[in-house]
Design a protein around this nucleic acid. Structure first.
Lengths: 345, 345
DNA sequence: CTGAAAGCGCTTACAG
DNA sequence: CTGAAAGCGCTTACAG
């Protein structure tokens, strides 16, 4: 028993040395067994003794000590450069669940709204933590920043992106397909004049261009169909301005792809205020399937990818990358968006 | 320059030894200066040299190394035992902003919905990380668990709670006051028969009892006023069941305190489906001021505390506790809820 | 005022 | 198959 150790902290927590002593083995054996290292063969009997000792002492590994030794922590950093949204949170919760059994610690960072200099500082701090991997939205990390991460020893960077990148692995959520899906659905509902909301916040507008192209591809095959871009600020007054500017006069759009659910919400409200009936006068379509969508009136038709699936892919990709394996093809295949028809279209 | 060091990782990142060498001082001096330790006086000139060397090398401290040495990490763990909600996310973002300048790393854990055994395991892992502090909702940590945290070396635990606890510091968000505020407002609007939604999910119902008592205190002073408890499951069908069971027949409630915004939303939708007009037939009041509240129709009247204020308090409290100071009285004073009147009442 | 040295709790190459 | 030892990058008591 330690007697004159000048303990710096209160430290009641047992260490691997304590476990080793109790099991009557070396510290190395404890490490091998608890980490399931195959290279070294330890007898079944000894393994059982070690597990039991760990259990009895209530031993938990000290993540900092391990991280220091291995040169890599058990953290997975999630970096989001999008406004706080219900969708993002749901995605985070999904990832947290997925990682639990892998003993990984997901940490969320929201870089949206920070001045560029603070973003740089934030990234520097994140890299310095030497996370096992980084999962980031494509906008939140430039190619240069990904390179800098690698240089600082963070090799695994997975981007959630509208299209594949050359410089790192991506989970592809194709906004182009969302655009075609939206246009097809709205045309099928009998509309000819479509609109696409363009967020006036550049950070929030990620994937707009792809949506636009997807819609155009469908429109161009449909005689008489038109498409109009509708700039909008994310607020009630922004939605009102959109209505006054673009939903008046002959040939105005009668069906709007609202970019995502966050934009659909104030738009729906402003439309109701102006006595537009939804979907009879104007159809509205969102993206992300945010949790409140089913409760509002009219319930919001939306396009979405499965959050659980995104989370699972991200983790599997990180794990494959870490073990140096090639990434299975099914993980790089784009995750097709699905249409969820409710009442607003 | 290191030549035969058997580097385990790629490690391009500079260490404090590198900084010391470049500045021509000892490693200790670097540590003292970069951490702003006052105890040891280092000349202005040397300080400048150290800062410059750190800057030039792009030095960032290795958090794991420091944590291992200090017996405490720079993490602040936030533990939430509530369903994923926009409100929680907004609070998290506020805390993240607050902590940036203190070089603290907030980490969010959602324990809602996990089986008890997994919660225990999660807490064990959180404690083992030796965070600088824990900020938790009152339901997510029992007194016993707070004690266990202390025993594992995590001394600072701040609870966000409806009432002060004897065993640790609290940020008090008095649900009792929310109840009185709700009852007063609804009575002023001319209602006499009030209802209070009771979430059927025990974890979600935190603070229900206090709301109830607050409402009763007001009701009891008002001749002819009644109050009914309305059990509800968080879903559209749950809201429908509530309406069918409790909003029929003479003397039924005409004004409902929906527990919080999450419950108010499906309730509003179900009321609309049943052709109740809000607020004319039934008034509905929420809590939390979730971001979508202002966009729905009718816009949701709600009761809330300032997220920024909660985040700031939590951090200040943690910082005061760490430095061993007494907590300033203004931090322990309950954070009074405010009424935000919109259209649903 | 500055510097050399110990030690936090792990993992892993290496010797037995 | 098992164990002793080095070392990851810091902080801090202590000696000069």
């Amino acid at each position: 028993m330690p007697e004159k150790k000048p303990r710096t902290a209160r430290q009641a927590a047992p260490t691997s040395v304590d476990v080793a002593r109790r099991a009557g083995v070396s510290q190395a054996a404890v490490s091998y067994v608890l980490n399931g290292v195959q290279r070294t063969h330890v007898s079944q009997e000894v393994q059982a003794k070690i597990w039991q000792a760990a259990q009895e002492l209530g031993y938990s590994i000290h993540p900092s000590a391990r991280a220091l030794r291995k040169g890599q922590s058990d953290e997975i950093c999630l970096i989001a450069d999008v406004p706080v949204s219900a969708h993002l949170f749901e995605l985070f919760a999904a990832i947290q669940q997925q990682t639990f059994s892998y003993n990984l610690a997901p940490v969320l960072y929201v870089s949206h709204g920070l001045p560029p200099q603070q973003v740089e500082e934030l990234l520097r701090r994140i890299f310095a933590r030497r996370p096992m991997g980084i999962i980031a939205t494509a906008r939140s990390m430039t190619e240069q920043q990904v390179a800098r991460a690698r240089q600082m020893g963070v090799e695994q960077v997975v981007l959630v992106s509208a299209e594949p990148a050359t410089y790192t692995s991506c989970i592809v959520l194709p906004s182009y397909e969302a655009g075609t899906l939206a246009a097809q659905h709205l045309l099928e509902r009998g509309h000819h004049h479509l609109g696409l909301v363009h967020p006036d916040d550049a950070a929030a507008a990620y994937g707009f261009q792809q949506r636009l192209e997807g819609m155009r591809a469908i429109i161009s095959q449909t005689p008489g169909a038109t498409l109009q871009i509708l700039p909008m600020h994310l607020s009630l007054s922004g939605a009102r301005a959109l209505i006054e500017t673009y939903l008046d006069g002959p040939g105005h759009p009668t069906a709007i792809y609202a970019y995502n659910d966050d934009y659909a919400l104030p738009l729906l409200r402003a439309l109701a205020d102006r006595k537009f009936r939804v979907p009879e006068d104007i159809a509205v379509l969102g993206t992300d399937n945010v949790s409140f969508g089913e409760f509002i009136q009219p319930a919001l038709t939306t396009i979405h990818a499965d959050n659980q699936a995104i989370g699972q892919r991200a983790i599997e990709m990180l794990l494959a990358l870490r073990s140096g394996q090639a990434i299975p093809a099914e993980l790089t295949r784009p995750l097709q968006p699905r249409l969820l028809i409710r009442e607003s279209t």
